[in-house]
């Protein structure tokens, strides 16, 4: 079980961007727009994208099943998806 933390949208965004930076360090993430296709814009292949979502799960405790990968293809989509599913802080 992952540690349950109290993430706000800001912290969450920071975690997501930091993970993306690890995959595509050469990319300028400040130019990434909320509805850009993450894989296309950052040139992340499906293998890297898979590992990205697994790493995110480990950090924020939200498992994204393979069938939902289509919903988390943009920064906005991913944030929305995660925010409603974050484990409650106890």
């Amino acid at each position: 079980m992952n540690a349950v933390k109290n993430f706000g949208p800001k912290e969450l965004r920071q975690i997501v961007l930091s993970q993306l930076h690890g995959l595509a360090p050469e990319a300028d993430l400040s130019t990434l727009r909320p509805h850009d296709d993450l894989r296309e814009t950052l040139e992340i292949d499906s293998f890297d994208f898979l590992n990205f979502l697994i790493a995110l799960d480990q950090e924020v405790g939200v498992e994204i099943p393979e069938k939902d990968y289509g919903k988390v293809g943009t920064l906005a989509g991913l944030m929305d998806y995660l925010l409603v599913r974050l484990p409650e802080a106890t």
Binding site: H21, G22, A24, P25, E26, A27, E43, I44, D45, F47, D48
Partner: peptide, 19 residues
């Protein structure tokens, strides 16, 4: 390490660069 990952990706593309 991250710089080298990025270096490879920028030159070789994601299909070829070391992960």
């Amino acid at each position: 390490r991250l710089e080298l990952i990025g270096w490879g990706r920028a030159r070789l593309g994601s299909a070829v660069a070391p992960k």
